[in-house]
Each structure stands twice: as structure tokens, then as C-alpha cells.
Design a protein around this nucleic acid. Sequence first.
DNA 1: AATCGAGGCAACCGCAAAAAA
DNA 2: CTTTTTTGCGGTTGCCTCGAT
Length: 328
Amino acid sequence: MGHRCCGKQKVKRGLWSPEEDEKLRKHITTHGHGSWSSVPKHAGLQRCGKSCRLRWINYLRPELRRGSFTPEEEQTIIDVHRILGNKWAQIAKHLPGRTDNEVKNFWNSCIKKKLMSQGLDPKTHNLLPKSHHQRSASNNAASSSQSPLLQSHNQQQPISVHLTEINASPINVTLSTDQYHDHGQNPSNASWTRVDDPTFNDITRLPHQQSTDHSTLINNISSSSPSSSVNLSVFGLLENSNIWASGTEPFEAPRILVGEQSKGEEVVLQQEKDTLLDQMEIKGIEDMDHASIFESSSVDFSFVESTLMSCGEISQDLNSMCNFAWRY
DNA sequence: AATCGAGGCAACCGCAAAAAA
DNA sequence: CTTTTTTGCGGTTGCCTCGAT
């Protein structure tokens, strides 16, 4: 039977034998892989090129680190996943010697369950609806090992966090959540902005500065044409999160870009910005009293909060995260 | 000792992006 | 510029192991 990916007859499938491993290892260490599609022929393997590539990347590469994940690695995965979502390859780049497949498997078999048992949605890292986490909280009543995220939610501690993206143009996001008015719900006085970015024009004030004017912030975002230079990538922190104002449906925020951006990513980012702007228009946000949106606490910033929770942990544990530096 | 089910992990599949022709 | 090929990724599947019954 032919193989779907390469159409070749008589390719072997399933687990690799030690002999096959040895052939592949020998071939690649002496000749390199070149074009993967030609590797099986040159290495004398009855496998498809794709299978060879996968075997090399996930198992034979000499720099691979085997064995179970350390608590530090686990924390790194959780923290980066909170920002990037299911970008396993990106996450794996922060864990030297680990593969995307390994990270994905570890997430699906272990971390996911752990988060859920702590009342957290593994997709968004937000608290699950009360019915969920009350149930799981009672399940864990005897457990003292609450996640930093859940602890932060429960303790309602004020947060002030800076995030700097090093490789790309510097970003400095400041969050200040001075008051919480609703347990586990919305921080009522959350505000944010982006600094150190010349394209950010009028909204580069730090939120805790006296002159901060939320209406200026929202006004700049909503009134900018898609082609303007206002940089909305700060919203990228909120991947897979939803933003909503009272009376409106949630809409999806665009993604953060980590490290160097390719042109393709820039296009995607621009599209996401456009979409965001469109959605704000569709929902009539530009016609609302922008200041009142913020002052009435009707904007849910819990997504920001959850995204950047437990940054104390991050600053300790993300030594391998070359793209980020976290600080208080 | 045999069976069953859950969990972990390696490998496969399909798709999309990137590169080459 | 278009088409084809290659590469890379994320989701999913299926096999193997191990513990419980």
C-alpha cells in the first residue's frame, strides 16, 4: 500500500527499530539531512522522508534532553502557554533539549489536568466558571498546593507588572490593578499602556501617572484608521482572551509577537489590528463615552490580570526565556 | 493468571507556509 | 508570477505499559 504523504510503495510505518535508528543517525551525522525526501533513499531506509525527519527531531538529535520535566520546566511551559497558547514549537524553544511533541504530550497528559483540578481553564488560564472551580476547590480542600495563579485570584492582591520584549522593539507594558471590586472578577481600576514606542503617540503615559486619561487611550484606538501607525500589539498579550464592554459580545484579541517578526507575521498582526478596530466599530464603541467605559468598570480586564499573574514566579523561572524579561 | 482500562508517549495525518523550480 | 515541492506545525491516533480487579 502506498504512503499518503509521498505516494511511495513499501514504506515502513510504526515504531522505529534500533537498526533503523542507527542507519538514520549515521547518515545524518556524516552527510547532514539535506532534503528530507532524499534521506530514506541515501540512508537505505524504507521510510518516508517525513518520518525520518520526525524521528531525528524527536528522538535521535544528540542535543535532546531525555527524562521527565523538572518543576522549573513545567512552570516555564505554563507561563509561556499563558501568553502564546498552543504554540508548542514556540514553547519548546524556551526549553533547551525539549521537542514540541514532548511539550505537547506533557501538557495534554499532565499540566492540563493539573490546571483543571485547580479550577483553571487550561486554554485561557482564567478561572473556570464558579460551578466548575467550586467543585474542584472542594475536591482540593485538603490540598495546599494551589497554583500561583489561583492564589493570586483568591488573595486579591494588587498587581503592578512590567513586561519587556527584548528582541523586538522594546515593549514595556504596565498594569496597575489598584482595586478589586468583585471577588475573582474584574479588577475595577485596571489600566494599561505601552511605552518606549514612538508609534504609540498619545497613549504612552504610564497608567499610574496623574495625567493618565483612559478616554485618550480608548479614543486613540477606536478612532485610528487601520492604516495608521498606532501600535496595538499590546493587545497581543491577550491571545485567546476576550475583551468585552457591557452590552457587547466578547471579541478576540490579536496575538503577541515574540522574538523576530517575519513579514508574514506582520501582515497577520496588521490584519488582527484591523479586525480589532472593525469589531470596536461594529459594536459601537466609538460612539460611546469612552471615559465612562473605563470609569464604570464595565471593561473586563481579568484577561490581562490572568495573563500576567504570578510574574514573581516567572522572574525566577524563566531564565531560559530569551525573549522576555519580567520585573516588578 | 487473565482481563480491562487509563495514562503516557511515539508516530501519523492533514494543512499551511516557505522555498524551489 | 504560477506551480510544485519541501518543511514545519498542531491535532490526533494507536500502541505499549502498568496497575487494579
